[in-house]
């Protein structure tokens, strides 16, 4: 006798987050990206629909990424010197649908670019590429608080995903995201409680839960991947059981973590790619909706993996 497969029915549903605005929505993007909407754990299609596929965003910097490994830089055929060229390479050569712009250049240690320079740059970039944008700050709270609001304004109407709000510094960013019609990344330090608390705090300010992506903070393979995995899994279980405050899609910064691993730094070119792919595919199983990645080859491998999962 064949034991029938036990199928779980969930009462909750992950919110659908829309990034980018086309001309009809008042923006200038060629298309929009929708993520979320799942009603089951990842890829268990028989249990519930997963209307939107996970997406991969190329990480692009506003300055030359001097600390990136040689092998990583080589992959872009040295287009990294000019951020606009870099972004166009991602979109045109690799046919990428969404970009993640990291404003590293505003950091005091990376050039300390001013808000106005950055706003000009973003306007320019929006003219040169027509994919939806994720924009994240430099990690320096003071500088981010000064620059990000101006950048939000520069990208007004484009419905970007802006980050990152953290528990001790979320009000400024939430206010400008609200004002300029963007979405927000809520970042918590591998902690399900803080993730939930931050979502509540943000929605208490009037930004609806449908406009939040959770950055649960991840570690690469061998560097805490399993912690991130279990936190994401628990978030998903809570969300699918009906907890709306945790029902936001995930954004995972895979590239930054994978290329920080010692294995990616000391060995030949291949190992970093493998590290990025393994980290990314594991996190897809944990429920990642947006993977921010770095190496074009790793991105292409994970893309075909996703395509395979969704093959009819």
């Amino acid at each position: 006798m064949v034991t029938p497969l036990m199928l779980e029915k969930w009462s909750g549903k992950i919110a659908v987050l829309t990034i980018g605005a086309t001309r009809e929505d008042g923006g200038s993007r060629a298309h929009v990206i929708k993520i979320g909407g799942q009603q089951s754990l990842p890829f268990l299609f028989q249990e519930g629909p997963s209307p939107h596929r996970p997406v991969i965003a190329f990480e692009v910097w506003d300055v030359y990424p001097q600390d990136w490994q040689e092998s990583l830089q080589r992959a872009y055929v040295y287009s990294l010197k000019d951020p606009i060229v870099w972004a166009k390479t991602c979109v045109e050569d690799y046919n990428e649908q969404i970009l993640c712009l990291r404003l590293q250049g505003i950091h005091p240690d990376y050039g300390n670019k001013s808000a106005d320079t950055e706003a000009e740059f973003i306007k320019e970039l929006l003219k040169k590429v027509d994919v939806p944008l994720i924009i994240i700050g430099s990690g320096d709270d003071v500088k981010d608080n000064a620059v990000l609001p101006i950048c939000c304004e520069a990208a007004r109407g484009e419905r970007c995903l802006i980050g990152s709000a953290v528990q001790d510094n979320y009000k400024t960013l939430v206010a400008s995201v609200l004002a300029d019609g963007h979405n927000i990344i809520a970042e918590s330090p591998i902690d399900i409680n803080i993730a939930k608390q931050l979502n509540i705090l943000i929605s208490d300010m009037g930004l609806s839960l449908e406009r939040i992506a959770i950055n649960p903070t991840i570690g690469a393979l061998g560097y805490g991947l399993e912690y991130a995995y279990s936190i994401m899994e628990r978030c998903r279980l809570a969300a699918l059981s009906g907890d709306k405050t945790l029902a936001s899609p995930f954004i995972c910064f895979v590239g930054q973590e994978a290329w920080r691993a010692k294995e990616s730094k000391v060995n030949d070119d291949r190992q970093g790619i493998v590290w990025e792919v393994i980290t990314a595919t594991a996190l897809l199983q944990a429920g990642a909706d947006i993977l921010v990645m770095r190496h074009p080859e790793a991105i292409s491998k994970v893309n075909s993996y996703i395509a395979n999962l969704f093959r009819e």
């Binding site: 902690d191 409680n193 803080i194 939930k196 608390q197 509540i200």
Partner: peptide, 14 residues
């Protein structure tokens, strides 16, 4: 620790 983090909110995260 988990319970403590969950309780660090008014009145509670849950």
């Amino acid at each position: 620790m988990e319970e403590y983090m969950a309780a660090l909110f008014f009145p509670h995260t849950d």
